[in-house]
Design a protein around this nucleic acid. Structure first.
Lengths: 143, 143
DNA sequence: TCTTTAATATGACAAATATCATATAATTCC
DNA sequence: GGAATTATATGATATTTGTCATATTAAAGA
């Protein structure tokens, strides 16, 4: 459904949401350990997100990655679309090209409501929303 | 969530459910084309399912794969457990070892109800159920 | 302006997963 | 019992995906 890369990206962004600000940028090497993602791999992912303006970054001393207020207000699905592309998440469970509401595959009815609900959540919930949950002890971001 | 192998296996089994019987066994080479799965790959998967008694088979002339009545009455989840193992399907969205109801990851609440519902369906619906849907034009099994 | 710092770009390497090939064993039919 | 047929077992190859390494570019501070 979502790739390992997207999972890592989400973890990274949530970490930034919790610990960074325009005034307090964070380097990859200080993010990778607490979220348990290989440094070079995380770097690549954050670079991609930065290029797509989903997170912010500056280089040089005092530089690093961070989230602007605008970044924070974006829905989670932007992250997975940025990393996995639009298709992956919407693909049929059996990966059938022809599967849709009109010609559903045998599993379509079993999965469709669940997946729609999940995608809806990803579109509605912002990065900030989830970060707040973590801050309030409602959810956890361990290794 | 479920692997390509499981998808292929499900397609294969549903094809057998529709076209085979104890009296009418079918060879892999006659299954792979209509469901659009590479022959040798499908063979391997069906062999595994056969070994785990999820489908039936006999070798030699007039042999092939088929579904007994008992086979048909089994829930779908058996197929995916046989191919992917028990863990994969139940794993956390972010692949966090420590994620559970007590210490949910940030995405847990967004995904959990959807996934539970899907797994429940896989446990309830039998191979026969889905085959009937296909037979009745409610769902479709194309390439 | 020079040095240091940290992101960026690019591509090589590794591991996992999907795909294919070959030899063997069991069953049928003659 | 022998030839043909089809599943089984095992392992090799290819592709995808994840991981790592290196050189380059931009910013900061002296």
């Amino acid at each position: 459904m979502i790739s390992t890369s997207s999972k890592y990206a989400i973890k990274g962004v949530l970490f930034l949401a919790m610990h960074s600000s325009e005034a307090k940028k964070i380097m990859v090497k200080d993010i990778c350990t607490p979220i348990n993602v290989p440094q070079a791999y995380l770097a690549k992912l954050l670079q991609e997100l930065s290029r797509q303006k989903i997170i912010s970054s500056t280089r040089g001393p005092k530089g690093g990655f961070y989230l602007s207020d605008e970044n924070r207000s974006q829905p989670l699905i932007k992250i997975v679309h940025a990393i996995d592309g639009q298709r992956r998440m919407n693909a049929c469970v059996l990966s059938l090209k022809t599967c849709d509401e009109n010609r559903p595959c045998p599993l379509h009815k079993l999965v469709s409501p669940a997946k729609k609900q999940f995608i809806k959540s990803l579109k509605e919930k912002t990065i900030e929303n989830l970060a707040n949950n973590i801050a309030n002890g409602i959810s956890f971001l361990p290794l």
